[in-house]
Structure formats: structure tokens, C-alpha cells
């Protein structure tokens, strides 16, 4: 019983870390510009497919492919931000929603065209397959890897946002864009960089997610993933890194527990919890506004 519970805890945390990686960019960019980017999941999908192509077709080692995916998806994100998104920051939110849904639909069809509509899986190195002993617990090697890598990145992010000059600029912009601008912070540049970083992390998360979820499909950014992202962002509070981390871990744990104990109601219970949470605190658990 205790072992079962610990395994569940472990798997839930691994999933939560993954969700955090994929959603943190959305949280920060939404907090900063109030831009509702429903296409964020498309970056995760792109990362997943790029990872698959790099490792299986181009023969790049798994560990080398991950940073490549991060850089490539980040560059794509920056390109889209500069050419398209920038002109919509002053538009109403309905415009954001429509525009980014349109982009997502195009990305899904594009992925179907390039990679086919079948589930695509990724080959990982042998040392990531099977089980490992960790703190006296028999756990999946890949999940352990995920938890360590994701945990390290999450820590680096929190540290970077709290302790570096750039992090301070990001936080200032999220808090009050106008005031930050009057203090001489180049808000546009800070936002572009943050957006690139966030998309890169989504891509990295997507690449890591392929093996965890057992493969991905082109409809990946439309389904439950979009909702999970939005849950992490809204429940965690816009622009709050720690809030997003807490929400992602909770969601991961809740998902793992619900799927294990009550698989039938799990799928809709999660939405019920979200609606209730948002009614109770419309600006997130740790949100201030």
C-alpha cells in the first residue's frame, strides 16, 4: 500500500514537472502582455515531432537532440512573435483566441502533412528503458530522468526569475508594464526574449513528453493538453512561476491518482475541480490580481 502510494506520488510528480515545463512559457507571456496564446500547445507538438525526427531519422543522440529542439522551437516562437503576435497586443482577447486557434488548426494540419496522422513514438537510449531503484523504490527510469531534468530546469527558472537582472525585468513587466517601461526597461525586447524562452521550453517539454505519453499525434495541441496548460496557468495565477509550479504538480498528482483510483470519472472530474477552483479564486491560487 505504502509502496503503491509512493509510486503514484512519483509518477504524478514526474507528470507535473512535465506540465510545468510545457506551460510555464504560457503563464509568463500571458501575465506580461495579457495575450491569450492558445497556440502554445503547438510549440510542444513541434518540439515532440522535431525530437522524433532528430533521433530516429537524423540519428542525433537523444541527449544532444533535446537542446537542439529547445533552440529550434524557441527560434520559431521568436519568429512568430515578431512577425504576427506583436500586432495584436492591443486587440481584444477574442481576437487573440481566434487568431491562435487558427494558427493551431494550421499547425495540426501541417503536422499531419509532414509526419502523418499515426501515433509517432521516439527511441530513447537503453539506459532510459525499464526500471531503476531510487531511494529504495522501484521506479521507471525515464520518469526518474524526467523528474531530475525537469526539476533542475524548474529550479533554474525560479532562481533565474528571482535572482538575475533579466528575471527582475521580467517580473517588473508582469507586475506593471507601463511602470516598467517608464523605468527604461525595453518591454518589447524583454517580451520577445521571454516568449522565445517559453516556446523553447514548451518544445523541450514536448520532446520529453513523447516517450512519457507513449507517442504523440497531430491533434496533440488541441485535446486535453490545451486544457491542462490553461489549468496550470489560470489556477497557478498569471505570471506566477511558483504558482504555476504548484498548480502543475497538483494537477500531475491529481491526474495520476484519479486515473489510478477512479478511471471512469477521472476524465471529467478534473474539469469540475477546475471550474470550482476558478469560481473560488478567479485569479488563481497564488494570483494577486
Amino acid at each position: 500500500m505504502a509502496v503503491e502510494l509512493l509510486t503514484l506520488l512519483f509518477n504524478g510528480l514526474a507528470y507535473g514537472v512535465l506540465l510545468f515545463l510545457m506551460a510555464i512559457g504560457l503563464s509568463v507571456t500571458m501575465g506580461m502582455m495579457n495575450f491569450v496564446n492558445l497556440a502554445h500547445g503547438a510549440f510542444a507538438m513541434l518540439g515532440g515531432y522535431l525530437g522524433i525526427s532528430l533521433t530516429t531519422r537524423a540519428g542525433v543522440p537523444f541527449l544532444a537532440a533535446l537542446p537542439l529542439v529547445f533552440v529550434a522551437v524557441g527560434a520559431v516562437g521568436a519568429g512568430i512573435e515578431v512577425t504576427l503576435y506583436r500586432r495584436f497586443y492591443r486587440s481584444p482577447q477574442l481576437t487573440h483566441v481566434l487568431f491562435t486557434i487558427g494558427l493551431t488548426f494550421m499547425a495540426v494540419a501541417g503536422a499531419t502533412y509532414v509526419w502523418g496522422s499515426q501515433i509517432a513514438a521516439m527511441r530513447v537510449p537503453d539506459w532510459l528503458i525499464g526500471q531503476t531503484m531510487f531511494l529504495g523504490l522501484q521506479v521507471g527510469s525515464y520518469r526518474l530522468f524526467l523528474l531530475l531534468v525537469g526539476g533542475a530546469i524548474a529550479l533554474a527558472l525560479v532562481f533565474g526569475l528571482e535572482r538575475t537582472r533579466f528575471g527582475a525585468m521580467v517580473r517588473a513587466t508582469v507586475d506593471n508594464r507601463r511602470m516598467a517601461q517608464s523605468l527604461g526597461i525595453d518591454v518589447g525586447r524583454v517580451f520577445s526574449l521571454t516568449f522565445a524562452l517559453g516556446s523553447g521550453l514548451a518544445g523541450l517539454g514536448g520532446a520529453l513528453a513523447v516517450n512519457f505519453l507513449g507517442g504523440i499525434q497531430p491533434a496533440f495541441p488541441l485535446g486535453y493538453l490545451l486544457v491542462y496548460f490553461l489549468i496550470v496557468v489560470t489556477v497557478g495565477g498569471l505570471g506566477s512561476t511558483l504558482g504555476a509550479l504548484a498548480a502543475a504538480l497538483l494537477l500531475g498528482l491529481a491526474d495520476a491518482a484519479a486515473k489510478f483510483y477512479a478511471p471512469v470519472i477521472a476524465s471529467f472530474a478534473i474539469y469540475l475541480v477546475m471550474v470550482v477552483l476558478l469560481m473560488w479564486r478567479p485569479h488563481g491560487i497564488l494570483g494577486r490580481r
Partner: peptide, 12 residues
């Protein structure tokens, strides 16, 4: 299969 591409493009 690519209907959604056109739909997305129209929307954009």
C-alpha cells in the same frame, strides 16, 4: 485531412 488547415487559414 487538410480541411483544418484551410479553416485555420481563413480564421487567420
Amino acid at each position: 485531412e487538410y480541411w483544418y488547415f484551410w479553416l485555420g487559414l481563413i480564421l487567420v
